[in-house]
């Protein structure tokens, strides 16, 4: 616990993320009017009118309100898609590493395929074909981000399964799933946690990119959408793209700091040196 408190990157990351979380959860309290609704004259510059610190867009919508509601999409997509892809990756990696042989070979080939294919292009294809919604976006991001988890877990499982405590489990008549879930995986948790936290950051970036391309959920305002919609206004209204972009950068920095902090806390030997 002392270690965690001394860990500055973790502390800064958590503080930033807590702030963003509060904004996301209480967006409807801060801004009772829907972010889609016009709140003022169009294209007001930031800080030019009280109550509209970040200005208004071409339809008079409050940019600050959009950013507050957009946080919901970013955080939801980041967390949910990471949970799904970690589950998928852990399952495939654990099965491949535990059983080995032909099954391992097949699963790893499958994993390599997903890793070689341009992931972003694949997510675009997926969302475009199944029509953009929060669900398809989350599924698309999960679909392209599980392979590194599978490879990591497979490696961990392979090295752990020959250890004595696992052999003891076999002697005691523990079932295969019991061995995997009760004995092996708990020992592989820390690298998975580090990887998962970094995946949240990537997922947030991917979601913003999809929304930027017009493949976002039409019913929910998101940072990527705001930037994409203001692309043609860049010359005349810089604030429409600058502020949502900053929101993405701050959020992703916060998540990455947390990931780095976890790495330092859970793996003190190799602290700070992240493998991409």
């Amino acid at each position: 616990m002392k270690n965690i408190l001394k860990n500055t990157s973790l502390a800064i990351g958590l503080a930033l993320l807590a702030l963003i979380l509060v904004i996301a959860v209480f967006a409807h309290v801060f801004y009772p009017v829907s972010p889609w609704q016009s709140a003022a004259t169009p294209l007001l510059e930031p800080f030019s009118q009280s109550g509209l610190p970040l200005g208004s867009d071409m339809l008079g919508r409050d940019v600050a309100a959009g950013i507050a509601y957009g946080a919901r999409v970013s955080l939801t997509v980041g967390v949910v898609s990471t949970i799904i892809s970690v589950t998928l990756g852990v399952t495939i990696g654990a099965v491949a590493g535990f059983y080995g042989g032909v099954l391992d070979n097949l699963l790893m080939r499958f994993t390599e395929l997903f890793q070689t294919v341009p992931q972003f292009a694949m997510a675009v294809v997926f969302v475009a074909i199944f029509s953009p919604s929060l669900v398809t976006i989350v599924l698309a991001i999960s679909l392209v981000s599980w392979p590194p988890v599978a490879r990591l877990v497979r490696g961990e499982v392979m090295s752990l399964k020959s250890r004595e405590f696992v052999k003891a489990g076999i002697v005691l008549g523990e079932s295969e799933s019991g061995l995997i879930f009760r004995h092996i995986l708990p020992n592989a948790v820390s690298p998975i946690v580090v990887m998962a936290s970094l995946m949240v950051a990537t997922a947030i970036l991917t979601e913003s990119a999809l929304s930027f391309l017009g493949l976002g959920d039409r019913n929910m305002i998101s940072w990527g959408y705001m930037i994409g919609a203001s692309r043609t206004m860049l010359r005349d209204a810089w604030w429409l793209s600058v502020f949502p972009g900053l929101a993405i950068v701050v959020t992703v920095v916060a998540v990455n700091l947390i990931g780095e902090g976890f790495e330092k806390a859970l793996n003190p030997q190799a602290h700070g040196e992240r493998k991409a």
Binding site: L205, A209, L234, S241, G245, I248, V249, V252
Partner: peptide
């Protein structure tokens, strides 16, 4: 942490 498309616009 910077989105590619946003950096491009900046």
């Amino acid at each position: 942490a910077t989105p590619l498309f946003w950096l491009a616009m900046m």
